[in-house]
Amino acid sequence: MNFQDLVLTLQRYWASQGCIIQQPYDIEKGAGTFNPATFFRALGPEPYSVAFIEPCRRPVDARYGENPNRWGAYYQFQVILKPSPKDVLDLYFGSLRAIGIDPLAHDIRLVEDNWEAPSQGAWGCGWEVWADGMEVTQFTYFQQVGGIPCNPVTAEITYGLERIAMYMQNVDRIHDLVWVRDIKYSDVHLQAEVEQSKYYLDEASVELQYKLFEMYEAEARRLLEMGLAFPGYDHVLKCSHAFNILQARGAISVTDRQSYINRVRALSRMAADCYLKEREAMGFPLLKKENKED
C-alpha cells in the first residue's frame, strides 16, 4: 500500500465509523495532540469524533534528511473519539485490518505506556501498540488536558504513518517510501527537510526566537484574558514552536528547559480554561445536538 493510499484508507475507515474528517491545522506543531480538534475538543462535556492527518515538526529531530528513521517533519494520523466507545480497541484493530495488518498474521501487542505532555498540562493512560515488535500506534485515554480533568474521557489514537508505511512497504528509509506510483516520499519532502534542518540546526536566529517567544507569550496571555480562545491558543502554539527551535539550536540549558516548559504549560492551562468558559457560555452547543437526536 502506498503512502497516499494508507492515509486515504484510514480516512475512509474512520469516516465509516462516524468520525468527522477534518484537515490539518495551519500552525506548526510538534504533535497531533496540539491540533485544537484534539486539545480543545477533549475538554468539557461535548461529544466529538474526528480523524485527521497532521503534519508535525520536531526541530530537534531534524538530521538534514540523512537519518533513515528520523526526520524533523513527519505525519501523524489522529483519531479522537469522545466519549471513548466501549469497543474502541476493536474499532482500532479494524483499522489495522483495513490497511492490511491482519492480527492473525502479525503479533499485535499492547504495551503499557502512559502518555504525558507536560507543556500541554496533559496526560493519559494507554499503550504503545506493537506490530511484530514495532511501535505503530500510541493509544491513550486522556485523563487531563490543560490541567483540567477530562469528563467524559476521550480516546486518542495516533498512528505513526511513516513507520507503518515503511513496515508495509518493506523499506529501510523514510526516503524510499512510495508516496504514489513512482513518486517517493523524498521526491515530495526531501528538499524541504534538508533546508528546514539547516534552518533549525544552524541558521535560525536565536535572538529572534527568544524575542518571538516573549512576544507570542505576551500576546497569548492578552488574547486569552480577553476570552479569545482560538487566537490565544494559536499564539501558545507559536510559543511552543519557538521553544522547539531554540532547543534545536542548543540555546536552552537543562535548567532553563523546565522553566520554558512551565511557561508554555501555564498558557495551555489558560487556553483550556478560556475555551471551556466560552463553550459553557454558549451552552455547550454540541451537547444539545446530541440530546435532540435522542
Binding site: P83, S84, P85, K86, G124, C125, Y141, Q143, C150, N151, P152, V153, A155
Partner: peptide, 13 residues
C-alpha cells in the same frame, strides 16, 4: 484511570 463517561477508577476499562 477513567474511560468514557464512567466515573469508576480502574487500571484499564
Amino acid at each position: 484511570m477513567r474511560w468514557s463517561d464512567e466515573p469508576t477508577l480502574f487500571a484499564r476499562p
